[in-house]
Design a protein around this nucleic acid. Structure first.
Length: 725
DNA sequence: CTGGCAGCGATTTTT
DNA sequence: TCGCTGCCAG
């Protein structure tokens, strides 16, 4: 078989032009992923390249996984040796093996967003600055922006002209000190330090340059300056840098993504070959035309000429609901109607600007018993209980990690209050020691060796506080000793046992069970690293939890409607898409209203959402909406004003709809199942329940059927299951 | 030191 | 509406 079969001319060019820099401008639904996978396959199969000589950078871990899978289907076994991953994951690997050149500890921890914010708060505290006056979040953004442009605190100081910038400079300086003391690396450092490493160690850079003959960067429109510099460094030797992107789908400028990268690319590589992928394979003509109409209003863009051979399809449906409840109701009744046309719940997605909008939707879906899966929201690794346990593991792995120590020193509560913690930290800082070491010193002071150790100025603590601190120290010591021999799963169990974490959660109240379930989930992640030696297993576990955001894949087997933010929907497609909240202030979001560039990004966001739809697109707005407590009238989004009348039809929610809404009271699961139960399904026959997990007012059940159905994941509220005695 | 409560303020998107 | 902070009582 020929790899090039089934590609159109432009796609073929994108696959076969292998020498030199290549810029692929790919419209939505133009087969972009396919092109990337085929290009890699072509390099291997036709050009005879070893997969180890190829580096492919994706935007998400999920995209990386999908790419590997698709490549493996095309060329079985070839994906193993390929380097595929996000910039962050790639950099983490580089720094882990080469970081010592720039003074990085081998066991450095990776700090995520929340950790970063805590560091900023601590920095403010250390500098005697009031967080009320200087809100941490914007300061962190400023620091992050500086790092994304490779600015050290000293570089940043050059450009300081206002008092506020001076505050940022001071915080940034202290922030970096704290990072270094904790032997930690934040998200931005992963990228920045790698570039600095390559700059200062040409031989290290050279080894990577030589290895990677070809470099591919996906979602190039969402890269920031540092990421681009990195790609440039790596490709400097062979110049085989292929970047793929679509400026119209750039929606991450707030994360320092910089559209100039695309312009700079053409400037930095004058001999660049540019390929346009303009044929759309995804959407109906109506949908594509409407999306084009909407995006055409942006001034800062290169016009594209997208086209499709797909049928024109049905018109886009414009709906006005009274309020957000009716909006949700409309979506549900429409899904029900579509099901009569042969669509399934899993074919449908509801997209919105802000996560807060998911609430009214969720409530309605629960009330009407329509199955749904919520993407985003509070992510697994951001849950308090999960982060607590991870913090314990981090501390054991890296005793310098003051941030993690601060997090767990009184969790579960052991009588160490903020006052005591502050004293301890101040003392450690004064002595120039990591807090953990300071604690050990304190313990020795207790043994009456003060003179000898010259630590007379130890903080004067109440005996009770002192005892509490020693209790924590003993716990930490024991965990660290055991950590030398226990695999990461056993160590986690020891932590849970020694801290009485389960009891702590269950005492906390009604959500305790759910929280404990999350811990169990975390255990199963740890289990994947349990076969490794203690140190190594811990390291790989910690790294995977730091860099993987969405541990649970969007479950494709569940037949449920997807609720998702417009940002998170990028890269996905659905037969039916509802975009809700098409109102001024929501889309475009009110924070973007006073800035042309930001407004254009909002429009792109809208465009991204529209182009996810294959067959049916609904644009829904509410006449009244309560967002933060108060409710008020709304205005139609400027993005959907004056749409071509041949493409849309207007429908008012409330007339015949109401009747169609099934007022069946939530078929709330009456029976519950547990692993081991024997069950019967009306279609799949008899089987045994393998696993049950609670899922948002529902239960997800994994059943192993005796028949040919095999193993299935089912939603309790939806599946016709009954217990067999 | 902890836990409860009142008042306040601020609301985006996330690798 | 919610989540955080600060204050107060035990």
């Amino acid at each position: 078989m020929d790899i090039l079969d089934g590609l159109n001319d432009a796609q073929r060019e994108a696959v076969t032009v292998t020498q030199g820099p290549l810029l692929i401008l790919a419209g939505p639904g133009s087969g972009k992923t396919r092109v990337i996978v085929y290009r890699v396959a072509y390099l291997i199969k036709v050009c005879g390249l070893s997969p180890r000589r190829i580096l492919a950078v994706t935007f998400t871990n999920k995209a990386a996984r999908e790419m590997k899978e698709r490549l493996n289907q095309l060329l079985p076994g070839s994906a193993q040796e390929l380097t595929v991953g996000t910039f962050h994951a790639f950099c983490a690997r580089v720094l882990r093996t080469q970081g010592q050149h720039i003074g990085l500890d081998h066991n450095f921890v990776i700090y995520d967003d929340e950790d970063q914010l805590n560091l900023v708060k601590r920095s403010l505290l250390d500098l005697n600055l009031d967080p009320k006056h200087y809100p941490p979040r914007p300061i962190l953004s400023a620091i992050s922006a500086a790092k994304s442009q490779l600015q050290s605190p000293e570089d940043f100081a050059q450009g300081v002209s206002t008092y506020h910038q001076e505050v940022v400079r001071r915080v940034y300086t202290r922030y970096q000190e704290l990072l270094r003391e904790s032997k930690g690396v934040d998200f931005d450092d992963l990228l920045m330090q790698t570039v600095l490493l390559f700059q200062s160690q040409p031989s290290v850079l050279e080894s990577y340059q030589s290895r990677y003959l070809h470099i591919l960067v996906d979602e190039f429109q969402d890269t920031n300056i540092v990421q681009y510099l990195l790609a440039k460094q790596l490709a400097a030797k062979h110049q085989n840098l292929c970047v793929v992107g679509d400026p119209d789908q750039s929606i991450y400028s707030w994360r320092q993504a910089d559209l100039r990268n695309i312009l700079n690319f053409e400037k930095d590589y004058p001999q660049v070959r540019v390929v346009y992928l303009e044929q759309n394979y995804r959407s109906t003509q109506n949908i594509l035309q409407l999306a084009q109409h909407v995006i055409a209003s942006n001034q800062q863009r290169k016009p594209k000429n997208l086209w499709t051979l797909n049928p024109s399809g049905t018109p886009i449906t414009m709906v006005q609901a009274y309020n957000e409840d009716e909006e949700a109701q409309f979506v549900i009744s429409e899904v029900e109607r579509l099901m009569k046309d042969g669509f399934q719940p899993k074919d449908c997605a509801v997209m919105y600007r802000v996560n807060a909008q998911s609430r009214s939707l969720e409530e309605a879906f629960l009330r009407y018993g329509m199955p749904y899966k919520l993407v985003g929201g509070i992510r697994f690794y951001e849950r308090r209980e999960v982060k607590d346990i991870i913090a314990y593991l981090r501390l054991i792995h890296n005793p310098y990690d003051n941030l993690s120590l601060a997090r767990v020193i009184n969790v579960p509560g052991r009588g160490i209050g903020t006052r005591t913690v502050e004293q301890l930290f101040a003392w450690a800082r004064q002595k120039g020691l990591p807090v953990y070491t300071a604690l050990q010193l304190l313990a020795q002071a207790e043994e009456g060796r003060e003179e000898e150790l010259n630590i007379a100025q130890a903080p004067s603590l109440a005996p009770r506080s002192h005892r509490a601190l020693m209790g924590f120290l003993n716990l930490a010591n024991e965990l660290m000793t055991q950590g030398d021999t226990l695999d990461v799963l056993s160590l986690m169990d020891l932590i849970l046992e020694k801290t009485g974490y389960r009891e702590y959660l269950l005492e906390a109240g009604n959500e305790g069970e759910e929280r404990w379930d999350n811990i169990l989930e975390l255990r199963s992640v740890a289990r994947e690293h349990a076969h490794l030696p203690p140190q190594e297993g811990r390291a790989s576990f910690l790294e995977s939890v730091a860099l993987v955001s969405d541990q649970d894949e969007l479950d494709v087997t569940a037949n449920a409607v997807t609720l998702i933010t417009l940002h998170a929907a990028k890269g996905l497609e659905f037969p039916v898409v509802f975009i809700v909240g098409m109102e001024e202030g929501l889309l475009p979001h009110f924070r973007s209203l006073d800035d042309v560039a930001q407004l254009e990004e909002e429009r792109r966001l809208c465009y991204v959402g529209m182009t996810r739809a294959k067959k049916e697109l609904y644009l829904v707005r509410a006449l009244r909406r309560s967002l933060i407590g108060s409710s008020g009238p709304t205005l139609t989004s400027r993005f959907i004003k004056d749409l071509p009348s041949n493409l849309v039809r207007y429908r008012r929610e409330g007339e015949e709809r109401k009747v169609a809404v099934p007022s069946r009271p939530a078929p709330r699961p009456t029976t519950t199942f547990s692993a081991g139960d024997r069950v019967r399904h009306s279609r799949f026959g008899e089987g045994v329940v393998v696993n049950c997990t609670p899922a948002r007012g529902d239960q997800e059940i994994v059943v192993a059927f005796k028949g040919p159905a095999g193993i299935k994941k089912l939603l309790l509220s939806f599946a016709p299951l009954e217990k067999v005695p």
